[in-house]
């Protein structure tokens, strides 16, 4: 039973999705849209699973003193702070007790983490967490320069949420992305050292395309750019098509195996 029902569900919904493609009628469309919405809504619940996993794995690393364990506090504090920013916003220009509140809230979190990783002083940490939490609550009650906003997406526009987005997420994101320039160069160097037909072909084609705008080849330059265009338009097109047809078949075959219950690897049973 435990294993049969999921397989039946997969087959049922899979077959429906195939049939609906051929049925333009409104009722088929209607169920189709419902099912797509369902997958989104189930995904929402999965978010909770994800956050819980992140929290637990981080705490576990702290508890077992894994390499670089100390930084996991930073992960959790960053997570908690950004979440609080996302649900709060200023009522005016003044900040009031907002930052002390953030400190107290994060201290609460750290104390709770400490309580779950400690061997002997559980009560002490929980007590401190309680005190910090009390401070938070007092600030929430008496400070009206800022407030929590769950009902509208105001938090996403709040100063600190945007500041974190612009000054932490964007710089790291863009820098990670830009590291690719270095990595691509070292990868090319690696390919350069591999001496076989495949690597040579790959590198030659790469060089021709890479140097297509380069003016330093004198009279050869126009030929480089023409050759690179030809490479991109002709053999590239052919290979892409072969891969796409193959991948398409692979996808179709895998999907069919999944729907027919032949392939159950995704449920842990091969």
């Amino acid at each position: 039973m435990k294993r049969q029902i999921p397989v039946v569900l997969v087959g049922l919904f899979g077959l429906f999705m195939i049939f609906q493609y051929f049925v333009p009628h409104e009722s088929s469309e209607w169920i189709y849209e419902f099912l797509l919405d369902w997958t989104i809504i189930i995904g929402i619940f999965a978010m909770a699973l994800g956050l819980w996993s992140l929290y637990r794995v981080s705490v576990e690393k702290i508890r077992t003193r894994k390499p670089a364990w100390g930084y996991n506090y930073l992960t959790l504090v960053g997570l908690f702070t950004m979440m609080l920013f996302g649900f709060t916003s200023q009522n005016g220009e003044a900040w009031g007790w907002f930052f002390p509140f953030m400190v107290a809230a994060n201290l609460t979190l750290v104390m709770i983490i400490q309580a779950s990783v400690t061997k002997g002083h559980r009560g002490l940490f929980l007590g401190t967490a309680g005190v910090c939490l009390a401070v938070c609550i007092v600030i929430i009650i008496f400070d009206d320069t800022w407030g929590f906003h769950f009902e509208t997406a105001e938090g996403l526009q709040s100063t600190m949420f945007r500041a974190f987005f612009d000054n932490i997420l964007i710089p790291i994101f863009a820098t990670m992305f830009s590291l690719l320039a270095f990595f691509i160069a070292s990868a090319a160097y690696r390919a350069f050292r591999a001496r076989n037909v495949m690597a040579t072909l790959l590198l030659l084609a790469a060089l021709i395309v890479m140097l297509r705008f380069n003016p330093y080849f004198g009279p050869l330059s126009p030929y480089m750019s023409k050759a690179s265009n030809w490479l991109m338009n002709v053999p590239n097109l052919a290979a892409q098509r072969a891969i796409i047809i193959g991948v398409g078949l692979g996808i179709v075959a895998t999907a069919l195996k999944v729907i027919l219950g032949i392939e159950r690897g995704y449920m842990g049973k091969g």
């Binding site: 891969i243 047809i245 193959g246 991948v247 078949l249 692979g250 996808i251 075959a253 895998t254 069919l256 195996k257 032949i262 392939e263 690897g265 091969g270």
Partner: peptide
């Protein structure tokens, strides 16, 4: 490369059923 990813599971398992579907893929090609 590409389709090989989808063939890999059949390879690793070496189960006749999965290999059978690989054969179907080849016929389709």
């Amino acid at each position: 490369i590409g389709e090989e990813l989808y063939a890999a599971s059949a390879y690793l398992g070496r189960e006749p059923i999965l290999l059978g579907s690989l054969k179907a893929q080849d016929w389709a090609k």
